[in-house]
């Protein structure tokens, strides 16, 4: 029970921590307030508790596939909200703040859900209380340690290679969320995927520690199909190219403006 709780808490809390670190850096770079993220976090926990209480009933809808449809929508909204955060980064208006709250809430709903179901489901069992408590604390501890390390590493990379590094990490993290959405669509027989395009499980297994870490960071799949690879590449590099291009354009404009004023 102890070891399993550590694994469950790690796989659930780590993606939230990664997202929080990236968003914290985004707030730092854009000089906006982090309190919106905390609001989103509490909102996410609250909605999660409502979903968990109603999930046994909701999950029977649409031939027992309702939860998958809900989670697929959440994954897509999460990606779109991160795109919106990046697109409107320099506007800092109300829409940006609402998007910040929503994206945090989506992250909490997508990953916190598993952990809360596990804890709520097992904490009433007399044999598991101590294991849950110690295991969760250990899991939290590891996640917090990793977050601190991750924060300073990305902060260093931003200083070294500019803010585009943060854009890249956020886009990779967001695009990684579209892959489980595709797998869920296959799981409910909504779409079909071709056989795996490659198999890298000989190198890094998804179930290994490294596999779980890079899955939380970038949505690693050991056996991705061609469609998964295409969507991942498209959803990451198209917006990234746009950001690089527009940043270059705005830089050129500012140089031109300075020359004109001279």
């Amino acid at each position: 029970m102890l070891l399993n709780t550590v694994i469950v808490s790690l796989s659930s809390i780590l993606p939230i921590c990664i997202f929080l670190v990236l968003v914290k850096l985004l707030c730092k770079e854009s000089k906006s307030e982090f309190r919106w993220v905390l609001l989103g976090l509490f909102l996410g926990i609250f909605i999660n508790l409502i979903i968990i209480n109603t999930a046994p009933y909701i999950s029977t809808w649409f031939d027992y596939n309702a939860m998958e449809y809900l989670i697929i929508s959440l994954y897509c909204f999460f990606y779109l909200s991160i795109l919106n955060l990046l697109f409107r980064l320099h506007q800092q208006d109300d829409i940006w703040c609402v998007t910040l709250i929503l994206s945090t809430c989506f992250s909490m709903l997508l990953y916190g859900n598993h952990f809360l179901i596990y804890v709520i489901g097992y904490w009433q069992q007399s044999y598991s209380f101590n294991g849950l408590l110690i295991g969760s604390s250990l899991g939290f501890g590891v996640c917090i340690s990793f977050s601190v390390l991750f924060f300073f590493s990305i902060n260093y990379l931003i200083k070294r290679f500019k803010i585009i590094t943060l854009y890249l990490f956020l886009l990779l993290h967001a695009s990684g969320q579209l892959i489980p959405a595709l797998n869920l669509a296959v799981q409910v027989d909504l779409i079909s995927l071709n056989p795996p395009f490659w198999d890298s499980s000989w190198l890094i297994e998804e179930s290994s520690e490294i596999g779980r870490l890079i899955k939380a960071l970038f949505g690693y799949e050991a056996k991705p199909s061609l469609l998964e690879i295409s969507i991942y590449a498209f959803s990451t590099f198209l917006p990234l190219t746009y950001f690089i291009f527009t940043k270059g354009v705005s830089k050129q404009n500012s140089i031109q403006l300075r020359e004109d004023t001279k």
């Binding site: 999930a55 179901i117 489901g121 297994e205 799949e221």
Partner: peptide, 18 residues
């Protein structure tokens, strides 16, 4: 991991996976 499937099944409940 082999089938790429993941689904929570609540207590005294049923789930469908393709």
């Amino acid at each position: 991991f082999d089938l790429n499937r993941e689904k929570v099944i609540f207590g005294y409940s049923r789930a469908v996976i393709y």
